[in-house]
Amino acid sequence: MSLGPHARKLLEAGRARSEPSAEERARVRSALVGRVGPAAALATIATKTAGATVAATASVSSVGATLVKFGIVGAALVGVSGGGYVVAHRAAVARRVSASHVEQGSTATLPTSVMPQEAPAIAAEAPPPAPVLPLAFAPPAAIAPSSAVTALGTPSHERTAQSRDAIVAPPSTAPAILEPVPTPTPEPQANPQPAASPPAVDTLRSELALVRAAHDALREGRPAVALERMDEHRRAYPDGALGEERDALRVSALCALGRPEAPAEARAFLEGHPTSPFLARVRDACLR
């Protein structure tokens, strides 16, 4: 016996996606940032290879890129107030840079693994005594939001898990080495060991790169370039994880170009994604 028409119909209806509202999205997001710590949330996934040192500067540049460039779903939706977020991020960057210095400076005396995404969270729980942070990175007052957010509602098992998993440079050694922190020089995205990543990660990374490029192009007033990137995305990843972002950017680009098919495409997007977090963006671009 297989499925009858009624059962089929019900299942088909069930395939329509119901998505979280922008408020729900932001609420869960800020709760998560609160529980894992802003720095941990922004640290790039994964940290070390066996016995190798952490590519701290590389992480810094890509985290920065993520935060700054991927404004569509990034900073715009953060529940924590924008200012606090960036400041917390800066504090994280400063700490991570310091971690890299600790490593470069005295590799022999330190445990092999300093996990960038764990370290700041733990530092926030037990803040080092008035660290001398370079002003450009994090004015002392700016650390408060980060600590406050981390302290909020971190359950004990989460905390023990973090301290169990992370081997962190003792905070007391950090301030002394902090003094000569340089501006992290942005490095090209093409970093060592790309071959080591599993295909799904490569895919998501490629998708992200296209979406970011399109987003940048739109913001810089080059909708034709954005459209090109998104057509590229559509060809390469028709069912990609970022399909909705792609469609939103594509429609926005069509509208910016004043293409004749733009109104129909915009309507199709609004109807196809009635709860999309990108509705406002598409409306702004198209329905003026």
């Binding site: 996606r17 119901s18 999205r25 940032v33 949330a41 922004l42 640290a43 940290t47 993520t66 990374r205």
Partner: peptide, 24 residues
């Protein structure tokens, strides 16, 4: 075990891109 370097993707990237899927 031995995490590998996956530069360019953050936890929040995962959240932002996969939330709708998980929610649903």
């Amino acid at each position: 075990a031995e995490p590998k370097e996956i530069e360019g993707i953050t936890f929040l990237d995962l959240y932002d891109t996969q939330l709708a899927f998980v929610w649903n």
